[in-house]
Amino acid sequence: MAQIVRTEDEGDPRLDDFRDLSTADRRPDRPGGRGLVIAEGTVVVRRLLASAYPPRALLGVERRIDELAPDLADVPVPAYVTSAEVMAEVVGFHLNRGVLAVADRAPQPDADEILARSRVVAVLEGVGDHENIGALFRNAAALGVDGVLLGAGCADPLYRRSVRVSMGNVLRVPFAALTPWPSGLERVRAAGFRVAALTPRADARTLREVAADGGRTALLLGSEGPGLTAEALDSADVAVRIPMSEGVDSLNVATAAAVAFYELAAAVN
């Protein structure tokens, strides 16, 4: 079980995994950094503890650590208990959720492994906003998407903000890089998927029409604002749109993805 360790020393070196999370060049989850995964709040920490990501330690106020006691029964890591004030000094900001956990990264499947066991996948291009990435993963987990493939220009799904916004679902939905880009889409097609590019173009087929065709589908989604590049659109098998009311031509990428995930997953279930 977890070892409960009480400390009121903000300089305690055992807390270094949690230190200065608001300082960009020192963050342990930043690209090129130590590669740690950080979970915030009891719900997300529980999902991390139940995932394949090996936990290293927890840090929290006593009430939150007590709430997690059943989840920590078989987890042999230190759980550091301190005050909210000391925790804020260590982390660099006041954490309303009252508990953090850090873990090492787990081995990820490659794109071909994900495709082999999937019916609906999301393929992202240029989705560089961590909150959008997190929301996409949360929607994917909720609406029956089997995996996510990351093309060029995508943010790291395991960045702290992405993990938080996803409510820990980036730890449950398998993902992999799809390279090279966009010619890697040929791997998706060779695995038996139809590549459907989501776009507001008026000449695109409607989402419901494409979903009704059935079959394995890879939904291609572009960045907020510019959307998919011309090269990615040209590499798709079909352009698909969500019909909208007059005067509205687009949705936030995570919202649009949720609508499309629902329609596509329902068609194969």
Results as ranks from 00 to 15, higher is better:
72 L>G: 15
113 E>P: 06
82 T>N: 01
261 F>H: 05
30 R>N: 05
62 E>R: 12
147 G>P: 03
183 S>E: 15
233 L>D: 05
13 P>M: 07
10 E>Y: 09
65 I>E: 12
107 P>H: 08
195 V>L: 00
141 A>M: 06
23 T>C: 08
160 R>Y: 05
133 I>Q: 15
237 D>F: 00
129 D>R: 02
8 E>M: 08
211 A>Q: 07
264 L>F: 02
143 L>T: 07
85 E>T: 08
96 N>Q: 13
21 L>A: 00
144 G>R: 08
65 I>W: 07
85 E>P: 02
116 A>R: 15
86 V>M: 03
178 L>R: 00
17 D>V: 11
249 D>I: 11
200 P>H: 05
186 E>P: 01
249 D>E: 15
233 L>C: 12
27 R>M: 14
229 T>F: 03
14 R>M: 10
40 E>K: 10
45 V>S: 13
23 T>G: 01
62 E>H: 06
35 G>C: 02
39 A>W: 14
13 P>Y: 04
219 L>F: 01
135 A>E: 08
21 L>T: 03
190 A>E: 01
212 A>C: 14
122 A>E: 09
116 A>M: 09
61 V>W: 01
155 A>C: 03
71 D>T: 11
224 E>Y: 12
99 V>K: 10
129 D>M: 05
66 D>M: 06
53 Y>M: 02
210 V>K: 08
248 V>Y: 14
40 E>A: 10
133 I>K: 14
137 F>S: 12
4 I>G: 04
88 A>L: 09
131 E>M: 08
114 I>C: 12
43 V>P: 04
5 V>L: 13
264 L>C: 00
12 D>Q: 03
169 N>V: 04
177 A>G: 10
157 P>C: 02
138 R>C: 10
82 T>S: 05
100 L>K: 05
